Computed example of a mutant assay.
Amino acid sequence: MTDHADPLRPAASAPTGPPGPAISGTPPGPPRAGPPRAGLSRPGPGRGRAAVSGALICLTVLWALYSALNLLLSGRWWVWLIPDLVPPVCFVAVPLVLLALAGTAAGRRVRRPLTVVLVLLLFSGLTRSGVNWAALVPGGGPGRAPAGAVKVVSWNTEYWDTTDAPDTFYGYLKAQRADVYLLQEYLAWVDGRPAPLDELARIRREFPGYQVEVLGEQVTLSRFPVVSRTPVGQGGGAGRGASWQEEFEQGKVLRTDLDVRGRPVSFYNVHIPVQLDIERSVLSAGFYGEIRSRDAVRRDHYEALLRDVSDNPHPVFVAGDFNTTPAMRDLDGIRDVLRDALPASATVLPGTWNSDGAGLWRLDWAFTDDLLEVHRYDFDDPRGLSDHQAQRLTVSLPG
């Protein structure tokens, strides 16, 4: 007979042992650490610092490469007109930011060599940054202007008064109270193309006693008698009988010799063409073809200006919209023979464009030779009338 378990018989008791935590009320202890699972280990501080150091090294190498190529190619190869659009202040800001990161986050091994390289990059970019170092020197700056000093205003008007209330535009100009005005973009923009204006009657009415000289889109107003008017470079080939379109395309440097209290002084009104055609797609061949052709035109205007200035026996004042930043080497020739007026300014970082935005680019310049002394150089907010700040200067003839 088979043996069966009695259902009324109690089950065998479980083996006795020490009570578990749930029974004794003792809180459970931390679980024992087992071996780490593959792929789940956390990076230690050494590994994170190494990654940061590697990133800083890569950024430093990239900036050093850009800085070196800027020195070698800017003003020499038309393609570099595109990388030249980087705001010049980056030549100071980028090394400073990388230096700060290297000092706090880089590993000990790379910190010292990285710091040396970044300091060298910082010093190599000082003259390309656009910073007015003279404004940081206490007690610096030019002396007071003597009686009879000449007040000059140079301004890219951005299509004259066609995008503004005309009364407001002319009111702004007259409020400058300048002896000489060097104005650019005396034109309208119609259907994506430049078009001539006919406002000479109003200009003469608004500025009685001034003499007016016009070349294409450039206007020079003077309280002083005009001795001669000379289009420089390509503009000289257009002649008095040329069409407005020819003058606009070729005449970008207008020299006007003025009789300033018995002494001739040459004032150059300059508008170097912009290097890009923003209406074209960067993916089209025409975009780059236009840059190449404009680079040739820009070089021609710079060379003609440099020749004329170098051969000019009179005191020289040159100002206008050069569409060239302090980091671009297109201005090297001019800066070799003339003096930038910037040391006479109290502005530390002049950004004449875009006045409606961040204003990180100085595209407008003023130069003189040793026969003129600059006493004051200011940049004026155009109050929405233009995307360029106006340049205001006070100059005098020594003696």
Rank of each mutant, 00 (worst) to 15 (best):
A11W: 14
P19C: 10
G34Y: 07
R42D: 12
P43G: 04
G44F: 07
G48E: 12
S53H: 05
W63C: 03
A64R: 02
L69E: 07
L81G: 10
L81M: 15
L85T: 12
V86G: 10
L96K: 06
V97I: 14
L101F: 10
G103R: 01
V119Q: 10
L120K: 08
L121V: 06
L122M: 02
G125K: 02
G125T: 01
V137Q: 12
P138E: 04
G141H: 03
G143N: 06
A149V: 07
V153T: 09
N156G: 08
P166G: 05
D167S: 15
T168A: 15
F169T: 11
Y170D: 03
A178R: 06
V190H: 09
V190P: 01
D198M: 08
R204K: 15
E206Y: 02
E206D: 08
P208K: 09
V219W: 01
F224E: 04
P225W: 00
P225V: 02
A238D: 07
G251P: 00
V253E: 01
D257C: 10
D259G: 03
P264F: 00
N269Y: 06
P273I: 09
E279A: 15
G289R: 09
S293N: 13
R299E: 13
D300T: 13
Y302L: 04
E303C: 02
D311T: 13
F322C: 03
F322D: 00
F322A: 03
T325G: 02
A341D: 00
L349M: 14
D356M: 13
A358Y: 12
A366I: 04
D369V: 00
D370Y: 01
E373C: 05
V374R: 01
H375R: 06
D380I: 15
P382M: 03
L385T: 06
D387H: 01
H388Y: 07
R392G: 02
L393C: 06
L397K: 05
